[in-house]
C-alpha cells in the first residue's frame, strides 16, 4: 500500500491498477481517486472490468500490480451488484439491516426515513420490489455512517421512474452527509447530472474528467457514442428485463408476489 497522497481529503487513491485472472487481463493501468464530498462514476461497457476495479479499490481482490491507498480509519458503505439472497434463507428487512452491526434506535430510524423504507421494515426481503430492495441495501450501507459510499450499478433492475428517484436520493445523501460516492454505471446519461467526475474504462483507462468533458471525448464517443446504437441497446436491455428473460431476482420476486396474490 502506498502512503499518503497529496491531499488529506483523498479517501481512496488507486495508481496503475492492474488485475489479472490467470492470463486474462481484467483491468490494467487505471488511475482513480475519490475525495470527500465527491461523486465519482466509473462507466464502461459490460465486461469492461468496472466491478473488478471496485473490488480492487475496496481491497476485496489484490491488484496484480499498482497501488491502492485507503485513508486510515475510513468506513465504507458498500452496495454490491445483483445481491440475490437464497430463497431458503428467511429474512426480514429488519434482520437484514441488523447484519451490518448493532446500531442505536434513533440512528436506524433516521436512515429508514432517509431511504423511505420504514413501511417495509418487517416485510420479507423476498417479497419486496426491486426498488425497495436497492433502498434496503443503501440503508444497510448508510447505517455504518460511511465516509465513502461505494455503489455498484445501484439502479439495476429498478424501473425508470425509480431510477431517477434513487439517483436523486444518492445525491441528497452526498449533500447532507458530506461523504464521498464511488459509483459504477453502464450509462452516462443517467448519472451525468449527479456526477462530479467520470472515469470511463474499457479494461484500460479510456478517459476521465467532468461529465461534459468526457461526453465530448473522442475515445468516449468511440466507445459509447454511436448515439442511436447505444440508446437502442439500452432500451433493448430494459425490454429484456420486463419479460424476465434473464431470470433476474427482481422479476422472480414480482412473479412470486403475483402468485401469492392469486392464492
Amino acid at each position: 500500500m502506498k502512503n499518503s497522497p497529496s491531499s488529506p481529503s483523498v479517501i481512496i487513491d488507486g495508481r496503475g491498477i492492474e488485475v489479472r485472472a490467470g492470463t486474462k487481463v481484467l483491468v490494467t493501468g487505471i488511475d482513480i481517486s475519490i475525495s470527500d464530498r465527491e461523486v465519482v462514476t466509473v462507466i464502461g461497457p459490460n465486461g469492461s472490468g468496472k466491478t473488478t476495479l471496485l473490488r480492487a479499490l475496496l481491497g476485496l481482490t489484490t491488484p496484480t500490480s499498482g497501488t491502492v491507498y485507503r485513508r486510515p480509519a475510513t468506513t465504507i458503505g458498500y452496495m454490491p451488484q445483483r445481491l440475490a439472497v437464497d430463497r431458503n434463507l428467511p429474512m426480514t428487512v429488519r434482520r437484514f439491516l441488523g447484519l451490518a452491526g448493532k446500531f442505536e434506535r434513533g440512528h436506524r430510524a433516521e436512515v429508514l426515513e432517509e431511504t423511505g423504507i420504514r413501511h417495509i421494515i418487517d416485510s420479507s426481503i423476498h417479497d419486496i420490489s426491486g426498488g425497495e430492495w436497492q433502498r434496503a441495501l443503501l440503508a444497510r450501507a448508510l447505517l455504518r455512517d460511511p465516509d465513502l459510499l461505494v455503489l455498484d450499478e445501484p439502479v439495476q433492475a429498478v424501473d425508470v421512474t425509480g431510477q431517477a428517484e434513487l439517483y436523486k436520493l444518492i445525491s441528497h445523501i452526498r449533500d447532507t452527509r458530506g461523504c464521498g460516492v464511488l459509483m459504477v454505471s453502464h450509462d452516462l446519461h443517467l448519472v451525468m447530472a449527479e456526477t462530479d467526475k467520470v472515469v470511463c474504462i474499457n479494461t484500460h483507462l479510456c478517459c476521465a474528467g467532468t461529465p461534459d468533458v468526457v461526453s465530448r471525448d473522442p475515445k468516449y464517443v468511440e466507445l459509447f457514442g454511436r448515439g442511436v446504437a447505444e440508446r437502442f441497446a439500452l432500451y433493448h436491455h430494459h425490454h429484456d428485463h420486463e419479460h424476465a428473460v434473464d431470470g433476474h431476482v427482481i422479476d422472480e420476486h414480482e412473479h412470486d408476489h403475483e402468485d401469492a396474490a392469486h392464492g
Partner: peptide, 17 residues
C-alpha cells in the same frame, strides 16, 4: 452467528464491512 450469517448472505459485502 452474526458474521457467519452476514458472510452467508454476501461474502463481499461482509468483507467490506
Amino acid at each position: 452467528w452474526r458474521p457467519l450469517l452476514s458472510a452467508t448472505v454476501h461474502e463481499d459485502l461482509a468483507r467490506a464491512e
